[in-house]
Nucleic acid binder design. Structure first.
Length: 612
RNA sequence: GGUCCUAUAGCUCAACUGGAUAGAGCAGCUGCCUUCUAAGCAGCAGGUUUCAGGUUCGAGUCCUGAUGGGAUCACCA
């Protein structure tokens, strides 16, 4: 913020003039004053004590006087220990309010000419979206809004994992047990329908596996096992994948289907596109309800062969090396990582190969400066390796790569496990929060005179606000506990609490009659007004920091504080019934608060209702 | 076992990246609707920031170690 910079610059000037020492402006902490102390802004001068060899209080007074003289906005100051607390003039605050109430660029930064691509969601097409995807999607969406707000050109993309053994499992189960069921014939949402067949496959497979465990071959294997202390259950639990790949008839059928797919078998491909089509229409419906969209979709079926040529090129450049069996590797052991395979001996690629190729083609297509991958933190190592490889290959955008790693979402009962059926489905969750919003709003809301459609829209906005805010208020990198009961809460630190502050402002707006005067005519700004002004003043900084950290939670917490301070102001002071000067000032303040609340919530992907 | 992440009130989360007396919400207990929406406001209670050392004017934050929890260490994606 300009004022912060100005204060820092003057501290630097004073240090130079009075002590002949030069210091970095960035080394001086300046921030809002804690509310127990008198003042608006605080400068911490402890860092200068050693250099200047004077007591903190002496320096404080010296610099306080200097600041007062050279910064017009400063009315007075006091010194406590090593802190200079500055009080700003009422003129400054009134000007701030007038300057920004109609400034639609407040909180935004001009275009910076840089382009960032952000990848998020990235579902598999064998089952519907769940709570984990929701955290991913909300983070990705919010970050893209925030980055755009601070001046980046943003390209939102998702990778759709539409091929591989998983989708073959759903297809096989549908073929065998589906009796031609379609979303139309059953009335089921496409992604849910396909997901049901995936579950069906797993169920039949487990039955097959359990029957096999009772047979002679399995008994012999168990007797030969290396770790004699292992129980029978543990042994077969660990053996499951191997059984799938080596003994299972079902597994073999699924693998055959995958091979047919890779060989472009007409029947398999046709079933594949039909079933994926069902899934896509299901996903689209969910994305729509979440209010998100993408600029570009990458289908793995198109990109899975990418990267081979680049890896071979890397061998020629001696960045990678070839082993005796013909497989290609990268050695990262000098960087504290392991060797990593990039191409199998038979020339087929692995996950990493594809990611290398995809990154390069994205750069070719879009000329991006930055690339953000929103992917769960279980893949931290993968991205560390990927970024290192791209750096070794001297890719021009290598410095601009960022893995936005977020923690897993747990339930109060523990980890979500698809095998145990404890996964929270995205659509169910959305239904629940909207139903709860409807219930609460019907009891407590003030929605008289609205049509059913208007009411439904309000219920939707409130419910979605509860859900989105609940997830986004938590720092992304932290693992979070998702309590379904708490997520539909509408009191306290919640989305609806913030919406309520806005709704109160709107309600006053509807009741306001006639034009208001100049807010600058008001004298004697009250504490609860000053608190709001100070906080509004900090908004652009909050957005900037959120962008720098790729972290929407800072904005979420800021908005809660702002709403809280507004509720207090609303409670303490009359607005419509105030004297003319106070009324003009408070109405204007109302407007700026409403603007910032709306703008900030929009950065979180949350819409405001006019009434609730 | 190696590497990385994490530990703050009964529960869920904050703490301006080293600054002042660690803050909110939920749950519990008290008050406040004939004044602009009570989805609100005010108050009470709740803490040796997992533990042990260290660095300095100053540590929840940085360093070392221990302990608990998690992730990862596939020619799966």
């Amino acid at each position: 913020m300009q004022l912060f910079d100005k204060i820092r610059t003057e501290i630097v000037n004073a240090t130079k003039r009075q002590f002949g020492s030069s210091i970095e402006p960035g080394s001086i902490p300046v921030g809002p004053t804690k509310k127990e102390f008198e003042g608006d802004m605080t400068v911490v001068i402890f860092p200068l004590v050693k250099l200047l060899r004077k007591s903190p209080v002496e320096i404080g007074h010296l610099f306080g006087e200097h600041l007062q003289k050279h910064v017009a906005a400063i009315e007075s100051f006091n010194v406590v220990q090593g802190f200079i607390n500055l009080t700003l003039t009422e003129t400054f605050w009134k000007q701030f309010l007038k300057d920004n109430v109609h400034n639609d660029q407040f909180g935004r930064a001009p275009k910076n000419g840089e382009k960032v691509m952000i990848e998020f969601s990235s579902p598999n097409t064998n089952k519907p979206l769940h709570l984990g995807h929701i955290r991913n999607i909300l983070l990705g969406w919010s970050c893209s809004k925030i980055l755009e707000c601070v001046g980046y050109e943003v390209v939102k993309v998702q990778v759709i994992n539409d091929r591989g053994i998983a989708i073959c499992k759903s297809m096989l189960a549908w073929q065998r047990y589906g009796n031609g069921e379609t979303p139309e014939s059953s009335g089921k949402k496409g992604d849910h329908l396909v997901g049901e067949y995936y579950v069906k496959f797993e169920k039949v497979f487990v039955e097959e596996y359990e029957a096999w465990q009772k047979g002679e071959a399995a008994g012999a294997l168990f007797d030969e096992r290396k770790d004699k202390s292992q129980s029978r259950d543990d042994f077969f639990k660990a053996y499951k994948n191997k059984y799938f790949n080596e003994y299972s008839a079902l597994g073999e059928a699924a693998r055959e289907m995958l091979i047919k797919w890779e060989n472009n078998d007409e029947e398999v491909k046709s079933l594949w596109s039909t079933m994926n089509g069902w899934v896509y229409s299901g996903f689209d419906a969910t994305y729509d309800r979440l209010g998100v969209n993408f600029d570009k979709l990458y289908y793995e079926s198109d990109t899975w062969k990418l990267g081979k040529d680049e890896v071979l090129e890397g061998v020629r450049k001696n960045v990678f090396f070839k082993k005796e069996d013909g497989s290609i590797w990268v050695d990262l052991s000098t960087l504290g990582m392991d060797e990593k395979i990039l191409l199998r001996a038979d020339g087929t690629s692995v996950y990493m190969t594809q990611d290398i190729g995809t990154a390069m083609s994205r750069y070719r297509d879009y000329g991006i400066d930055h690339m953000v991958y929103v992917v769960a933190d279980e893949q931290n190592y993968h991205f560390k390796v990927l970024f290192q490889i791209l750096e070794l290959l001297e890719e021009p955008y290598a410095e601009g790569l960022y893995h936005l790693a977020y923690g897993m979402v747990d339930l109060p009962s523990g980890k979500m496990k698809s095998r145990e059926g404890t996964v929270v489905d995205a659509d169910d969750l959305i239904d629940d929060v909207i139903a709860e919003a409807k219930k609460v709003a019907s009891e407590r809301g003030d929605l008289e005179g609205l049509t059913e459609a208007e009411k439904d829209e309000i219920f939707r906005r409130i419910g979605m606000a509860a859900l989105k805010y609940f997830i986004l208020k938590v720092n992304p990198q932290k693992r979070m506990t998702f309590d379904p009961e708490a997520s539909v809460d509408m009191q306290g630190t919640t989305g609806p609490y913030i919406q309520n502050a806005y709704v109160r402002i709107r309600s006053i707006g509807r009741k306001l009659e006639g034009a208001i005067g100049d807010p600058a005519d008001y004298e004697g700004i009250a504490d609860s007004e000053k608190t709001l002004l100070l906080q509004l003043f900090l908004y652009p900084e909050v957005v900037k920091k959120a962008a720098a950290d790729y972290d929407p939670s800072g904005i979420a917490n800021y908005l809660y504080d702002l709403a809280k301070n507004y509720h207090r102001f609303y409670h303490d002071l009359p607005i419509l019934n105030a004297d003319d000067g106070a009324k003009s000032f408070r109405i204007t303040l109302n407007q700026l608060v409403a603007n910032v609340l709306t703008h900030g919530m929009d950065l979180l992907g949350i819409e405001m209702p006019d009434r609730m």
